[in-house]
Amino acid sequence: MTVKGRVLFDSERCKACGICIAFCPNEVLALDESHINGQGYTPAYAQKPEACIGCKICAMMCPDMAIIVERA
């Protein structure tokens, strides 16, 4: 299966509000409970990167611009 899209996180900006996770249509994202960033939050990451279609809804809803989206 070819990868359609890719999300890159600037984890230090993430405040773990969970909005990107709630709006992702393919449930690609999740909070990384094993990691705490400099601001004290558990940042979001791509749990199922292969399911990403590059729709950029997560980045559009992110209040902290922690997400960069690439499309094939």
């Binding site: 900006r13 509000c17 939050y41 559009m60 992110c62 209040p63 902290d64 611009m65």
Partner: peptide, 15 residues
């Protein structure tokens, strides 16, 4: 980086 609280809509409007 924005100083706003987690989930604050200001970040989106700024962008």
């Amino acid at each position: 980086p924005f100083h706003y609280c987690p989930g604050c809509s200001h970040g989106v409007v700024h962008r």
